[in-house]
Amino acid sequence: MIVYLMCFILFLTGMYGVLSQRNLIKIVIGLSVMEISIFLFMALIGYIDAGVAPIVTQTGEQLIYVDPLPQAMVLTAIVIGLATNAMLLAIAIRLYKKYKTFDVRKINQLKG
């Protein structure tokens, strides 16, 4: 149970970053921390005590496998997270080229 709570605290840390920081790069960092906490949570759900990695071997003995379904979903989500992160950073580069600053307050004040 404590491990779920720690995961939730990690999510809240990322959310604090997104809500409180003024620097675009730090907002991206906060978003990626939130993302990572969700990946970790899904991997934690699928874990079974004394289970082995879900790879079938030739030996005939009956093994307990860790649930492979959340792992497959997280694998998809990690790649999508990379794509969204790259897109956010591209927007940050573009804004920096235009306004010469990463500070959202200054970007807000400038017109055009």
Partner: peptide, 17 residues
């Protein structure tokens, strides 16, 4: 957590990020 595939993908993605 016995998820080697995820570990491989995550280490590559983290380095690229």
């Amino acid at each position: 957590l016995k998820a080697p595939d995820l570990a491989i993908v995550q280490i590559v993605v983290e380095t690229i990020t």
